[in-house]
Design a protein around this nucleic acid. Structure first.
Length: 697
RNA sequence: GGGUGAGUAGCUCAGCGGUAGAGCACUGCACUCACAUUGCAGGGGUCACAGGUUCAAAUCCUGUCUCACCCACCA
């Protein structure tokens, strides 16, 4: 009674992957509630919800693959596994994407009005979300789709409100007017973490500030921003600077060029005596350090730049100019007056909006803030005490450094897309990270006391990118501790960053990104996963090359063909392989013993590597075992053993045993092909799916 | 200015104290018995540079250079 085998000579992922994914979805085994009884202890991961700003890139594919490997591995080990999918509304980022689309139609969000604009964003979000979730499926992710969440869905809003009022009542949220980062294009405040500094070639202008009582004497100030001169309310020198000691004692006043307002000369240790002339102009409204100094010395605050980035409260000639126009004009005017001493080339760090790359301004504005002192303290403790572990450990430093900086978090944004601040009369929204910070428990149903929350919180692992350790990870940790009294995850795996072959950042705008869908299309999902993981050797960057995916493709083909050899040998429908292969239980040849020993070693190594998040090592040992030990050596040897009556039966058993065990070990990494072959194995005692087979011991 | 990581075969990387390895690419031979997305054989490297420690260094120490990425209130 022979069964027909339907294995093509060459493995074709296109004929397999879609079908297998449908089979999995139908089996409902992604859902922990439908796992067999043996799966008791919970193991959970919530996916870092991708922003609904476009398609997934290869970094997402890498991260998703890592998580799927962990989930599939733990599932086979008998855990009640939940991998929860979702997407992030990504406030300012998504709004910007839609604004860019409008721009192509020569429209702005103000042309549409708020209501129409939000409608438009939703249209985009629905489309985008579908594509993203579809991409995860193509990659083979065993996500529980019945629990999919979005950070702006109705239940999630309840969590955000609850969190806001909790902080508010506790006195941690306060309203205040102070200088903040402002993006003139997005028309919103930004937190410090949402600013990127870019080095640019600028100038350093040396400007004379005449004494108020004696126009022939003056101090020289070096500045990179002459246009803020109108907002100056003092000049400052370092108290240790002997050059200016006498003048400070005399309490002299300077006359501000162009408008002749009198300003004092003060001392402050924040001034670097070695920079320029050692004299600093203090512009409290438009510089954070100047603002700090002004508080100490009770200096007034004069705003001269408005939210559009234009000059205000300045002489008529300047009124309404952009800062760039004003700068040019001021320099010319100072030169005419003989107040410009010299100009030097100087490299400056320009603050940019992290979403639209527009130069931002510092300006005083009324915003909502979250007091960080106690929360930061708590977050630090979570890691220093070992309740949360970073892998690799070196990233903990980044985390601690930021938490020690101790600034309050500006949580209000003046954009339209996001969670409304839940207070009367307010038209602002919350920083998108305020809602992201609640993700590990809000996604599980909080503030309801849900069954999922009880079972799956805290989660086991957070796998994410190093770029958002402070923006997101730190905030999730203190949020979890504040609201649930427990850390949100026990391990933070910081995966390597995928760069181009040239070592450059992958970027959509530069056209250097690589679309994982194209790789899946060309090589199959398994090959893509295998190739990506192959490169994960613990460094902080991966320079992506397609070569490894070619190798993944060849490897899949090898597995396929090894199976094509083994399966016909065991066509007997009554064949049953032993659960465990005890070396002494059968009459084994030397070759048999060697392959079984090598297999045993591989099992241990893969297990240990996965415990340590050493995905690359695991994959390499599997490759060497399967290709060289099994195919090159054992299968070749088995050909003669199968011809010999004395060894035939045992050889068959060893062949199928090693194949099956290999499929189990390989399944977390390359789930499609292994499942496809598993389903065709002519053996007794099979499970419904390889997904829930017992992990080899 | 501070920090992190990296510089090993043409390319991407492993090795991290004891005679230089993998994948891809390349050269030669072999399509009858799982697989030519294969098998066998082969070429190719003063392990960034300079010192030092050691019987022994790609591997440890010191310094230098180059690259990448973070962080920072040099106006």
């Amino acid at each position: 009674m022979k069964r027909k085998l339907v294995l093509e000579k060459v493995y074709n992922p296109k004929l397999v992957e879609k079908k297998i994914y449908q089979f999995w979805e139908k089996s409902k085994l992604f859902n922990p509630d439908h796992l067999p009884k043996r799966h008791k202890r919970p193991y959970s991961i919530v996916i870092p919800p991708p922003n609904v700003t476009g398609e997934l890139h290869i970094g997402h594919a890498l991260n998703a693959t890592c998580q799927d490997i962990l989930i599939r591995w733990k599932r086979m080990k008998g855990f009640k596994t939940l991998w929860l999918p979702g997407t992030d509304h990504a406030g300012i980022a998504t709004q910007y994407v839609v604004e860019k689309q409008l721009k192509k139609e020569n429209l702005t969000r103000f042309d549409l009005g708020k209501e129409k604009f939000i409608e438009r964003v939703w249209q985009w979000v629905k489309k985008c979300r579908k594509i993203i979730l579809e991409q995860f499926k193509k990659l083979g992710c065993s996500l529980d789709w019945s629990r999919t969440r979005f950070t702006l869905d109705k239940e999630y809003s309840q969590a955000v409100k609850k969190a806001f009022f909790y902080y508010y009542k506790k006195g941690l949220i306060y309203k205040g007017k102070r200088p903040i980062n402002w993006c003139p294009r997005c028309q919103t405040s930004l937190s410090d973490l949402e600013i990127e500094y870019k080095k640019e070639e600028g100038k350093l202008w040396y400007i004379k500030y005449p004494f108020a009582k004696n126009e022939n004497s003056f101090l020289i100030v070096a500045t990179t921003r002459p246009e803020t001169i109108f907002g100056d309310t003092a000049l400052a020198v370092n108290p240790k600077d002997k050059r200016y000691k006498e003048l400070v004692k005399k309490k002299i006043f300077l006359s501000l060029p162009l408008i002749e307002r009198e300003i004092p000369l003060i001392e402050d240790s924040a001034v670097d005596p070695d920079f320029g002339t050692g004299v600093l102009k203090i512009t409290p409204a438009h510089d954070l350090r100047d603002y700090e100094i002004s508080l100490k010395h009770h200096l007034p605050l004069i705003e001269v730049i408005d939210k559009e980035g234009k000059m205000i409260q300045v002489p008529a000639d300047y009124q309404g100019l952009t800062v760039w126009e004003a700068r040019e004009k001021i320099v010319k005017d100072l030169e005419k007056l003989g107040l410009l001493v010299k100009v030097e080339d100087y490299q400056v760090s320009i603050p940019k909006c992290y979403r639209c790359q527009t130069s931002t301004e510092i300006l005083p504005s009324e915003q909502w803030f979250l007091k960080m002192k106690d929360l930061a303290q708590m977050a630090k403790k979570a890691v220093s005490s070992g309740m949360v572990k970073f892998i690799p450990k070196r990233w903990e430093k980044i985390y601690f450094d930021w938490l020690s900086s101790g600034k309050d978090w500006c949580i209000s944004r003046q954009i339209w897309w996001g969670h409304k601040i839940p207070l009367r009369g307010r038209e602002e929204v919350l920083d998108t990270w305020f809602s992201s910070a609640l993700w590990p428990f809000a996604a599980l149903g909080w503030p309801k006391k849900s069954k999922d929350l009880r079972r799956f919180y805290p989660t086991d692992v957070l796998s994410t990118d190093r770029g958002i350790i402070n923006l997101w990870v730190a905030r999730m940790i203190f949020s979890g501790m504040e609201f649930l009294k427990k850390v949100p995850f026990r391990k933070v795996f910081i995966h390597p960053t995928v760069l181009t072959k040239e070592g450059k950042r992958m970027s959509k705008s530069l056209g250097t990104g690589i679309d994982p869908s194209l790789l899946i299309e060309k090589y199959g999902a398994d090959a893509t996963r295998w190739g990506i993981v192959w490169q994960m050797m613990g460094g902080q960057d991966i320079k992506f090359v397609e070569d490894n995916i070619v190798m993944g493709q060849k490897f899949c083909n090898k597995i396929w063909n090894a199976s094509r050899f083994v399966l016909p040998q065991v066509q007997d429908s009554k064949f049953k392989i032993p659960r465990k292969f005890k070396l002494k239980a059968f009459k084994l040849t030397l070759a048999d013993k060697l392959i079984l020993k090598a297999l045993k070693k591989t099992i241990l190594f893969v297990d240990k590597s996965l415990e340590d998040f050493q995905f690359g090592r695991a994959v390499r040992s599997l490759y060497n075992f399967f290709w060289h030990d099994f195919c090159d050596i054992y299968i070749e040897k088995s050909k003669s053993q199968l011809k010999d009556n004395a060894t035939r039966e045992t050889t068959k058993k060893v062949l199928i045993y090693v194949l099956l065990t290999s499929l189990k070990l390989l399944h977390p990494f390359i789930p499609f092909i292994t499942e496809q072959i598993y389903l065709q194995l002519p053996i007794f005692g099979k499970k419904k799916s390889l997904m829930i087979e017992n992990w080899p011991e």
